[in-house]
Design a protein around this nucleic acid. Sequence first.
RNA 1: GACCCUUUCGUCUAACGGUUAGGACACGACCCUUUCACGGUUGUAAUACGGGUUCGAUUCCCGUAGGGGUCGCCA
Length: 446
Amino acid sequence: MSTPPPRVRFAPSPTGYLHVGGARTALFNWLYARAHGGTFVLRIEDTDAARNTPAAQAAIVDGLRWLGIDWDEGPEQNGPHAPYYQSQRGPIYDAYFQKLVDADHTYTEPNGAVRFRSPKKTIVLHDQICGDINIDRSEEPDMTIRRPDGSYIFHFVNVVDDIEMAISHVIRGEDHIYNTGKHIELFQAFGATPPVYAHIPLILNPDGSKMSKRDQGAALSYYIDHAFLPQAVANYLCLLGWSPKDDREILTMEEIQPLFRWENIGHSNAKFDLEKCRWLNAQYLAKLDAPSFDHLAIAWLLAQPTPLPGTDDPRLREVLPLIQPKIKAIPELAEHLPMLFDGAAPIADDARAKLAAQPALAPRLATLLSYLENLSDWSAASIQAAVAAAAAALAIKPGALLFPLRVLTTGQAHGVDLLPALEWLGRTEALPRLHARAAALTATST
RNA sequence: GACCCUUUCGUCUAACGGUUAGGACACGACCCUUUCACGGUUGUAAUACGGGUUCGAUUCCCGUAGGGGUCGCCA
């Protein structure tokens, strides 16, 4: 026997931002739809007029698109069940509401609010992830489904739309598990078959607390603004609560789709680890072709409120390939660019401290500089040869001169490949800064 | 507080009765190397606790503890 292809939905309310937990829920729904040849619906639950703004909706639409999630029905992609904004579906809700009234499933409070008369029975939820859960509704107060002003409550519109849009599977956060009891009552009151439910565990802060808007990395916009690669973020989000059941971690959405099964979804909440997300980002960043990296980097640079050194410099494009393999995320340009473009940048304390341990620093630097001065061809290979020659003259290993040379070049103990960086800098730019920092070092190190 | 879910290295997870409990991030060491990195190798590190069931429990059952969720005229 064959079952019809599933219809799933992501139904966010526009609160002004898209939470990573919400983004992952959207991703899981989308993955499920794509894995089974189903339909993914985006429905905006904007019944709360006060919070509903165009900017808030844009955060959702843009965020999902950025992640690589496309919807078959929804805003800007109208389908047979349009409109996909709850704020525009009033007549539908009125009609469904009347059904409930006619069947005597409701009663009105003195102030005008309307409640649904609960059967007060135990609902058994057959959850695809959590298993069978008994939800005792006998002691619960009747839920309100319509406010005195005539607007409808979440539970009501959510169920009505799931019926109207023929949603077959509801994949949502575990925080909704208790709502499901209410929702099933409503489905039954309408004579509709409830969808298949799958409640996924939540994403928590590193300290185990609930992620809220202001926590770093909680909003998807954080990753967009920090120029993360969407494939990396989507990949990371999937790793939270889902596993391919083997040792792979770097997977494309196409690879994940066939492995997206209920058995592969975890049962316990996961703490968000920004470090691992950055590591994953670095993996994707390293594989990026040069034009794409340039584009990403430059777009980020131009978006900075205070321009970073080198932003407008024509030599920027030449140095970007040196930086690409060194960073985990684009904002680390803020560390690399100043040391590369600013010859007067002061010498970092850790670099100075490491140098202080070197014997006979001043004479070594003098020898090294004299060899570099005499270089006619300022290429990485020539510079390397000059360093080797200086080292030979000093009877030390070339390696002993390279770290000091790095510090003279950038003022930092860490950075991009030194020799290519020196070549990129050019003789006329490099030599003065080498001399200046050598003077600064030897003046204070004695 | 009541109810529900959950519990393997610090973190994400694998192992669906028998493994030296595996991988990854982070951290340390070593190797590679011309510096910084990458990479390679490797180390530290876990089955919350207590009972059962079983020849044998990370795995099944019960209890305890911890964590999370829900208890709205928010969604």
